[in-house]
Design a protein around this nucleic acid. Structure first.
Lengths: 110, 110
DNA sequence: TCAATAGTTAGGTATTGACCTAACTATTGA
DNA sequence: TCAATAGTTAGGTCAATACCTAACTATTGA
């Protein structure tokens, strides 16, 4: 069943921990330790979230010595944004058409 | 474990079946049967998707006689849109700051 | 050189998601 | 009135998520 990239992106965004990580990375790259600090969670659990973000393509990382640094891949969020924007255009068009219809009906009354 | 509304919205969007349903509803209300027709899936499985969209607040439904009709609740998509827009503003600001910094450095060279 | 640090792997549990079939209820049109 | 229609409920399988602890590897600074 075609696991479209959008699936992974939206699934990655579905978790508050992962959204907070993205917000953090929006202000610049950070190491695993830095990223993990604000969370109660055990490290291995947290790493799973990072892995999920990375496989969704929303972040990328590089290890130097024993330190791995993550940064945002902003283009990837566009996938989600684009879908939502397209969706909004769709129903806005439809509401406009309804509006036109109502206007036409009102005019033909007079 | 604050299950923020955004969680449910993004999770609802994570499945292609549900996104197709939303696209369909973007063109106007439709009954369960109408919505289900394009999908191979058994009806009970499909209903679960509809339920998930409804608990996420993305759609609402009303039953008249034996027919249930679904329609989009567009405001709800704004939750997702807003988060993404805020996120974009964040990292765009940061990239601008980097840009300024680089410009400043270049100027001080000359 | 060796103990502390940074991250990783292995493996276990509980819940939820995505599907199915079978059997049911409520409505409606002939 | 009764068979077809529209949707619903019950219950089962399998994979993935979200967490955990324990034990490990690789790097580095004193």
């Amino acid at each position: 069943m075609s696991a479209v990239p959008a699936d992974a992106v939206f699934r990655a965004l579905a978790d508050p921990t992962r959204r907070r990580v993205l917000e953090r990375l929006g202000r610049g790259p950070a190491t695993v330790g830095d990223l993990a600090k604000p969370f109660e969670m055990a490290l291995p659990s947290f790493l799973q979230h990072l892995r999920m973000l990375e496989t969704a393509g929303l972040v990328e990382s590089e290890k130097v010595g024993r330190v791995r640094t993550y940064r945002l891949v902003p283009e990837r969020l566009k996938l989600a944004e684009d879908w939502l924007a397209r969706q909004r255009r769709l129903w806005e068009t439809r509401l406009d058409q309804l509006d036109d219809l109502l206007k036409t009906l009102k005019e033909s009354e007079s």
